[in-house]
Design a protein around this nucleic acid. Structure first.
Length: 814
DNA sequence: CTAGGGTTAG
C-alpha cells in the first residue's frame, strides 16, 4: 500500500554529508547509557532554534548560538532560513541563503517554500527557475507548494505551466503531485478539468478523494460532491473529519435536511462530534436548513468554540431574520472578549440592516475602525448596505465614494441602496458609471436596477433593459426575468409581462407572485384568480406573499367572496399564518366593497394588535364610502400608533371635507402641524423621448409651462361641454374661481396636458403619480380620454387606471 | 528541509 504512495521517479535529495560536529559530552554519555543512538539527540543550539516562536526571540537567540559554536553547518543554515521564512522575512532569509557557497538541495527547497508562502507567485517562480539554473533537481513537494499558491491566487495560466513541468519531471502519477493538480484546477474553478485529472490517477487515497469532494462542494456542485462521497466509500475510503467538513456545507447548500441529518448521524457514530470544526460545520448546516434552534443546541453544547463557530451561529440568526438574537449573540461574543472578524461584522451589520437599527450599525462601524477592518472591502460593502437599509443612503454614498477599490458587490450594494431609497436616477447613473468602468454587471446588479426602472415606469426604458438582459444572457436567470415581469406590469404593460412570464422555462414562487400582483394592480381580478388556480395545480407552492397578492387582487376587483376564501385557504391548506399585511389586505377588501361594519368587526376579531396599515385601510374605505364615524374611530386608533406618514391625516381631513365639516378639517391640519407631519407633495411623471418630466401641483418652472396652462384651459372648457363638473367640495376657504384654478393645476392634469401637447394623436400617454389619484382628476381624465380620443394610463401608488373613451378600468373603484 | 485535502461571508 505504502509503495503506491512513493513517487514514481527517484527522489533527488543529495544525502547531507555526515555531521562533523559531535554531540556535547553530556548528551553523548546519556545516549550511551540508555542505548539510544547519539544522533537522535539534538544539538542544544538546534533545540533553542526550535523553541523560537517569533522573530524577536530568533534575534535574541542568534548571538547565543554563534557564541556557543555551530553544530552541523548545513543543518544550522537550513534551520535558520526556515525560521526566517516561517516568520515571513524573506529578505533576511535571502541574506543567509545568498552568501552560502556549498548550498545543499534542502536549503533550496526551504527557500522555495518560503517564497511560496510569503511572496507573490512571481518571486516563487523566479526562484524555482534559479533552482533549475543552479542544477537543483526539483522534488515533488516543490511542485505541491507552487500548485497551492496557484490555486490560492486562482492563477490558471501559471498553474497549467507547473502542471506541465511536473509531468516533464516524471511526477504525473504521483499521488501528492496530482492531488495538488486536482486542487489547483478546482480552485481555478475548472472543476471538470480537476475531475479529469482525478479520474486519470492510477491510485486514489483519502486525501485525494477529499480534494475532489471539496472541489465540487466549493464550485457550487453540492449534489455531485455528495455523490462522490458515496463513490469514495465504494472505493473503500471512509469519510474522515475533512470529508465531513466539505459535505456539510454541500448539504446546507442543497437545503437538504435529510442528508444533513444523515451526516450528523455518521459524525456521532464516528466520534467526530468533539471536533470543533465538525460541530461548527453542523451548526452552519442546521442554520442553512432552517433549524436555527437545533443549531443553537449544538452551539451551546460545544466544549470549545472558535470564532468561526460564533460567526456561523450569529450569521445563522441574521440570515433567518432573527436579528434580535443575532445581536444578542454578537454582544455576548464581544463580552467574552473574542475578537470579531470581518465575517462577524458582516453578520452583525446584516442584523442591524434587517431591523433598521441605525444606532447598532453605527456602533459596529466604530468597531470596524478600531479593528482596522476598513481595508476589508466586504466589510465596507456591508456597511454600505446597512446604512442604505437604515435610510441613510447619504452615508452609504460617502463610504462608497471613499472606497480605495470597489468590487462588483460594492456597486451592487450602492445601486440597490439608491433604488430602495427612491433615488432612481442615482441608481441608474451608478449602473451606467460601472458599465463605463468596464465592470460587468451580474444578476444581482440586474435585480437591483430593474426594480428601479419599474419605479420609473417608463416603457421605453423597460424595453431597453430587457434588451440588455437578453444580450447579456441574463434571460436564463429566473430572478432577473421575474424582475422583468414585475417591471413590465409596473410600466403598464401587463400583456407584455404575461408574454415574458409564459416564455420562462422555469418559474420561482416570486415569478408567480409578480404576475398575479400585476393582474391585481391592473384590475384584472379574473386573470389573477385564474393564474393563482393554475399555480395551485403546478408544483410551485404559494407563499405568504402569493396570498397577499391574490387577496389584494380580489380587493381591487371587488371579489369579496373569493378574497375571503383565499384568506381561509392560506391557513387551512398551506399552514401559513396571516401577517399584519394580510389583515390589512382583508380590511381593504371588505372596506372597499362598502362592507364597513364587517371590516370593523374583522379588525376587532384579529388575534394580534392591529397595526397602522390595518387602520389605514379602514380609513381609506371610510373615505371612499363617506363614513365619518367609523373614519374618526379608525383615525383615533391609527394616530395612537404614531404614523410617520402625513398621508393618514390628509385622508381624515378629506373625509371631513367631503362632509363639509370644515372646523374638523382645520383641527386635523393643526394636529398635523403640531406633530410636525407634512403632506407629501403630489407629483406626476411623464416620459417624453429621452427625458422624464416631473410636475408638481401648480408648478410653473417647466419650459413649456405657459403653453401647458393655456392648453389646459381650453381642454377644461371642452370637457365641461362634454359634461365634466369640477369637484370643488374638498376646498372651502377660497373663492369659487380660485378653487377651480387650484383643481386644474393638479400635477396629473399638468402632466396629461404636457403629454397631449407633445405626442402624436392615437398614442397612449403614460403618467406615474406618487400618491392616489384624486377624485376630480380621475373624473376629468375620463372626460379627457373621451374628447381627445386618447388612451391615458395612470399608475398611482396602489394601482393602474386605464382611461379610455370616457371610462376607467378601475370602474371608479379605487 | 521532509509534500496533497477541510468550516463561517452579498
Amino acid at each position: 500500500m505504502s509503495s503506491q504512495l512513493l513517487p514514481s521517479a527517484p527522489l533527488s535529495i543529495t544525502p547531507p554529508p555526515p555531521s562533523k560536529a559531535r554531540p556535547p559530552v553530556l548528551l553523548h554519555t546519556l545516549s550511551q547509557r540508555t542505548h539510544i543512538p547519539p544522533h537522535v539527540y539534538k544539538h542544544p543550539s538546534a533545540i533553542l532554534l526550535e523553541l523560537c516562536t517569533s522573530m524577536k526571540e530568533l534575534h535574541q537567540i542568534l548571538p547565543l548560538i554563534v557564541k556557543n559554536g555551530l553544530y552541523d553547518e548545513h543543518l544550522f543554515q537550513t534551520k535558520l532560513v526556515s525560521l526566517f521564512c516561517k516568520f515571513g522575512s524573506m529578505p533576511e532569509a535571502a541574506r543567509v541563503f545568498d552568501p552560502i557557497d556549498d548550498k545543499i538541495d534542502p536549503l533550496y527547497h526551504t527557500m522555495l517554500k518560503g517564497y511560496a508562502h510569503n511572496s507573490c507567485l512571481d518571486d516563487a517562480l523566479s526562484f524555482f527557475n534559479r533552482m533549475k539554473y543552479d542544477s537543483v533537481r526539483p522534488v515533488v513537494y516543490n511542485f505541491t507548494y507552487l500548485l497551492k499558491v496557484c490555486g490560492d491566487s486562482a492563477d490558471l495560466v501559471r498553474g497549467r505551466e507547473i502542471h506541465g513541468q511536473l509531468i516533464v519531471h516524471g511526477y504525473a502519477s504521483n499521488v501528492f503531485a496530482m492531488t495538488g493538480v486536482v486542487n489547483m484546477y478546482a480552485k481555478c474553478r475548472l472543476i471538470d478539468e480537476a475531475y479529469k485529472m482525478f479520474d486519470r490517477m492510477p491510485e486514489r487515497d483519502l486525501v485525494c478523494w477529499n480534494t475532489i469532494v471539496a472541489g465540487y462542494a466549493q464550485n457550487g456542485l453540492a449534489k455531485r460532491a455528495l455523490e462522490l462521497v458515496s463513490r469514495m466509500q465504494e472505493d473503500g475510503q471512509r469519510p474522515d473529519p475533512v470529508t465531513i467538513v466539505s459535505m456539510l456545507p454541500a448539504s446546507a447548500n442543497l437545503g437538504s435536511l435529510r442528508s444533513g441529518k444523515q451526516i450528523h448521524g455518521y459524525v456521532v457514530r464516528a466520534g467526530f462530534v468533539l471536533l470543533v470544526n465538525v460541530s461548527t460545520a453542523l451548526v452552519d448546516m442546521y442554520c442553512k436548513c432552517g433549524l436555527v434552534g437545533t443549531a443553537r443546541l449544538i452551539f451551546d453544547g460545544m466544549r470549545s468554540r472558535t470564532v468561526v463557530s460564533w460567526n456561523s451561529m450569529i450569521d445563522g440568526y441574521a440570515q433567518s431574520g432573527d436579528s434580535k438574537e443575532a445581536w444578542i449573540l454578537f454582544k455576548k461574543m464581544l463580552d467574552e472578549g473574542l475578537k470579531p472578524t470581518g465575517v462577524t461584522i458582516m453578520a452583525a451589520l446584516h442584523a442591524c440592516a434587517d431591523s433598521g437599527d441605525l444606532a447598532g450599525g453605527e456602533f459596529v462601524h466604530q468597531l470596524v475602525n478600531q479593528l482596522g477592518l476598513v481595508s476589508d472591502v466586504s466589510v465596507m460593502n456591508s456597511l454600505i448596505s446597512m446604512y442604505s437599509k437604515c435610510k441613510r443612503v447619504d452615508i452609504a454614498a460617502k463610504l462608497f465614494e471613499d472606497l480605495p477599490f470597489r468590487t462588483l458587490v460594492s456597486w451592487n450594494a450602492m445601486i440597490l441602496g439608491y433604488a430602495q431609497n427612491g433615488h432612481i436616477t442615482e441608481a441608474l447613473n451608478h449602473f451606467c458609471r460601472m458599465k463605463l468602468q468596464n465592470i460587468k454587471p451580474d444578476s444581482f446588479t440586474m435585480v437591483s436596477v430593474i426594480p428601479a426602472l419599474a419605479e420609473l415606469s417608463v416603457l421605453r426604458q423597460a424595453k431597453w433593459i430587457h434588451g440588455l438582459v437578453i444580450r447579456t444572457c441574463f434571460d436564463k436567470n429566473v430572478f432577473v426575468m421575474t424582475a422583468i415581469v414585475d417591471m413590465y406590469a409596473k410600466c403598464g404593460s401587463v400583456h407584455i409581462a404575461r408574454r415574458v412570464f409564459d416564455l420562462m422555462p422555469e418559474r420561482h414562487v416570486t415569478t408567480w407572485n409578480a404576475m398575479i400582483d400585476g393582474y391585481g394592480t391592473h384590475g384584472h381580478g379574473k386573470a389573477a384568480v385564474e393564474l393563482f388556480r393554475e399555480m395551485r395545480r403546478g408544483d410551485v407552492e404559494p407563499n405568504e406573499i402569493t396570498f397577499l397578492c391574490i387577496i389584494s387582487a380580489c380587493s381591487h376587483s371587488g371579489f369579496v367572496e373569493e378574497g375571503r376564501r383565499f384568506f381561509i385557504i392560506m391557513k387551512e391548506d398551506y399552514g401559513l399564518e396571516p401577517s399584519m399585511d394580510h389583515y390589512g389586505a382583508m380590511v381593504d377588501l371588505l372596506g372597499r366593497a362598502g362592507k364597513l361594519n364587517e371590516a370593523w368587526d374583522f379588525i376587532q376579531s384579529m388575534p394580534i394588535e392591529p397595526g397602522i396599515n390595518v387602520y389605514g385601510a379602514m380609513l381609506g374605505a371610510c373615505k371612499i364610502h363617506k363614513n365619518v364615524d367609523l373614519g374618526e374611530e379608525a383615525a383615533d386608533r391609527l394616530f395612537q400608533l404614531d404614523p410617520e406618514e402625513g398621508g393618514y391625516h390628509v385622508l381624515l381631513a378629506n373625509i371631513y371635507a367631503t362632509a363639509s365639516m370644515w372646523d374638523k378639517v382645520a383641527k386635523v391640519r393643526t394636529m398635523m402641524e403640531k406633530k410636525g407631519l407634512q403632506k407629501t407633495p403630489g407629483c406626476s411623471l411623464v416620459d417624453l423621448r429621452n427625458e422624464v418630466h416631473t410636475f408638481y401641483s401648480g408648478s410653473t418652472w417647466h419650459p413649456q409651462s405657459k403653453k401647458i396652462y393655456a392648453f389646459l384651459e381650453t381642454l377644461i372648457d371642452k370637457i365641461k361641454a362634454a359634461g365634466y363638473v369640477p369637484d370643488t367640495n374638498s376646498i372651502h376657504d377660497v373663492e369659487d374661481d380660485v378653487q377651480e384654478q387650484l383643481l386644474s393645476s393638479h400635477s396629473e392634469k399638468l402632466a396629461i396636458a404636457f403629454g397631449l401637447l407633445n405626442t402624436s394623436p392615437g398614442t397612449a400617454i403614460h403618467i406615474r403619480k406618487n400618491l392616489r389619484v384624486c377624485g376630480d382628476c380621475h373624473n376629468a381624465t375620463k372626460y379627457i380620454s373621451l374628447v381627445t380620443r386618447r388612451e391615458i394610463i395612470v399608475r398611482d401608488m396602489h394601482r393602474f387606471h386605464h382611461f379610455k373613451d370616457g371610462s376607467c378600468s378601475c370602474g371608479d373603484y379605487w
